[in-house]
Amino acid sequence: MDYKTLDDTSLIRLIAHNKQDALGELYDRYGRLVFSVAFNSTSNQAVAEEITQDVFTRVWEKASTYDVDLAKVSTWLISITRNRAIDELRRLRVRPENHSVGWDDLSRENVPQSDGPETLTELIWKQKSVREAIALLPPDQQQSLALAYFKGYSHSEIAAALGEPLGTVKTRIRLALQKLRQVLEEKVVDSG
């Protein structure tokens, strides 16, 4: 069976039936994306590798529970990765020495390595849409958003980290999400 031609949902179904090659194909498609989210959260290569392994282990174990109506496979993977990474940060009480985390790579694309045409096109389109939307935000909103998303910081933690008033940070986060919502809905990005 040529797994590269299958869509993500079919891969998950095969994984639920212990098809290890299907997990390999899913990794080829999203391994880099998962690792990127983990690495940008933890800033630690070894921890990011561990989290990536945990995410695909979880997919292996929980594939039978996946519900396509609730989330696309890609957003499911991102959600698991982010939750796992923030848990790890809190467990390790890791705080970056500086607050340089950001979206500083908006011009590049996390292109998957699979040649599955539909998956490739959809993923590239999503990445392009979200990157373009974030690029529209002022730098201070991008920075606060990155600390909230990648580091799991709360309003008050962001305010303390940046030395900004709490109200300013709250406004930045609110405006950033409102703008992204508006732009992404206009782009009709699949919100699954």
Binding site: Q20, Y27, S36, T52, F56, D105, V130, L177, R181, E185
Partner: peptide, 30 residues
Amino acid sequence: AYEAVANQLGFAAPVAEPPPHLKKRILEHQ
């Protein structure tokens, strides 16, 4: 609606390359 936005932010994560050995490690673990 906002959760749908938040769930997509990971797509814009700056690229980080996983090491070549990671896929093998994951599959062997499974």
